[in-house]
Each structure stands twice: as C-alpha cells, then as structure tokens.
Design a protein around this nucleic acid. Structure first.
Lengths: 150, 150
DNA sequence: CGAAACTACATGCAACTGCAAGCAGCTTGA
DNA sequence: TCAAGCTGCTTGCAGTTGCATGTAGTTTCG
C-alpha cells in the first residue's frame, strides 16, 4: 500500500488544504473582529447548548470535536475561568467529569452564531450554488471514513 | 452582506473542516512515524528545490505558502539550524534575504516525497475515483478566490 | 534633497500545543 | 479478591504560535 498519488489526487489534496485554511482563516478573522473567542470555544459550547439539560460528560464532548484530550482539558479550563462552563464530578463514574454550560455560556454561543453563520455564508456559501455545496459535502464525506485497523 | 448561511452551506463548511483536519492529521502522522519533520518544512524545501538554482527571496517563499511572516521567519531559523537552508543577504535589496537550499535540504525533500505521496494516496486518493478527485478540486478551487477589498 | 510612508525581516512576551508521565477510579480474570 | 490493566482526566516541560513592536533599508514626492 505504498502507491504513489496520481496527479488528480495531489491536486485534490492541495486544493483541500488551501481551501480549508483560507476559508478557516477568514471565518476566524471575522469572529475575532467581532470580539469573539476562537471557533473551538464555539464548538464546545454548541455541543453542550444543544442538550436541553446543558450537561455532557467531558469524554462525550471529546468524541464530538477534533481536539486532543489534553487540549480539551485545557480548553475547558479556559471556558471555566470565563464562567461559560463548569465541571461537576460524576456520581456514576468517579473518573468522569460532567460539563455544564452556564447561562453566560449559552448566551455567548447564541450571540456568536449570527456572526459565524454570516462568515460561512460570505466566505464559502457565496462562492457555490446550493447544488455545488451539496456535491462538495458529498465528496468530502467520502474522505472521513473511520480509519481501518492495519 | 450579513445573510445567514443555508443548510447546504453549513453542511459543506463542516465537511470541509472535518475532512481537511482528518486527512491532514493522518498524513502528518505518517510523516512523523517515518521520522520526518512536519509538512511545512516540506513546503519550504519544495519551493526552493523546484528552483534549479535553489535560491529564492524569503518574501517570495512567503507568497507561496500559508504562513504568517513571523512564523516563516522562525521556521527558517529551524531549517537553518538543521543545515537544510541558509540565509544570504541580497545584493539588490538590503532588506531582503535570499534563501538557499543546501544539498542536505534537497536530499531530505527527495526522501520525504515517497512517504508523503503514499500518504496522500492512502488517506485521500483511495477514497475517490479520479473523476471525483477532479470534481473535488474544481469545487474547492472556487473557494480560494482572492479576497476582495471591503 | 529629505521627511514620511512603506517594505522585509526579526524578536520579546504571553498564550497555546504536543509529548510523556502521572493519578485516581473502574474492570477483568485467575 | 486483588493484582494487572484500562479509562478519564490532569500536568510539567519544552517547543510553537500570535501579537505587538522594533530595526533597517527603500521608495515616494513636495
């Protein structure tokens, strides 16, 4: 399994990396200009806010976002410091933390969304028809299959 | 220009970010396992190595890769420390550095490519037909248009 | 000419990250 | 039942990044 990549594949690779980094940088920049924290803060708040109870085990949040465990741990430290989230020891499993979103956390997420959404629309949506967006999502979806064991 | 993003657009956005991060992590991981440095090292070496002379102004390398100016500066520090590249003051412009790739630098790039290429093939190419790869590149290309001034 | 603006590059500092290791608390199986 | 291994989370350290700023060389133009 050490085949060389074809030209089409290499082209897809470079386009993928450049497009993601370009659009990501622009979206992050819009958030920053509006005085908001980085996207990863949004991701965590979003995971919790979509739960009516506003509570999830840290390990579950882990599974939903793309962050190393120690980085999530420290991100939670920062969120907690800003009173957006707090940790609660789990009754069921002494190792586990429950993360609880605060009102302030819910409010921040809610205020971030319009800016975030507009940025996605401006930097991505505006360049594609709705059909193109669907096709793009479809193709990208093929790349995320779970890594098979070796 | 503060329209909300459509559902298709948001789906394309999340697929884009996840696919890029997933594939990037896998490719970087393959390089690391093979004992090679990060991809950005490759990018710089590649820019220089494709020049027969092996020389380019730092500012021009800047334009080709996606790194903030101060980060390129420090990346060059590291490459220089490993004797892969060295800086040469420009005769024509006293502010400018010329970056010169060393034999060791050319050799490293050449040895990295098979691993890099195989990783791209495995983690991206293997999931797409050649036609799909072309279509993906085409769609992604639409996202990179130069940012218009406000 | 010469001051003001601009360009190329570098750097101090604080924040963030990756790695390796650590510490409970669970779970397993002889 | 209890030692060995696993899971969830945390942390010290060294390396990397972002931001703001600094320095020097170049261009512009009154």
């Amino acid at each position: 399994m050490t085949a060389k990549a074809s030209e089409s594949t290499v082209q897809a690779w470079t386009s993928l990396v450049r497009a993601e980094q370009t659009v990501m940088a622009r979206v992050e920049d819009d958030l920053k200009r509006a005085g908001f924290p980085p996207l990863e803060w949004y991701d965590v708040l979003h995971e919790l806010d979509r739960e009516p109870s506003g509570v999830l085990p840290q390990a579950q949040v882990q599974g939903s976002i793309m962050l190393a465990q120690y980085n999530l741990c420290r991100l939670i430290d920062r969120l907690q410091r800003e009173d957006l989230v707090h940790r609660q020891p789990s009754q069921e499993d002494g190792r586990s933390n429950l993360l609880v979103i605060t009102d302030k956390g819910r409010d921040l997420r809610r205020r971030m969304w319009p800016v975030y959404s507009a940025a996605i629309e401006e930097h991505l949506g505006a360049h594609l028809s709705s059909g193109e967006a669907d096709r793009l999502a479809g193709l990208l979806g093929k790349l995320q299959m779970v890594k098979e064991k070796v």
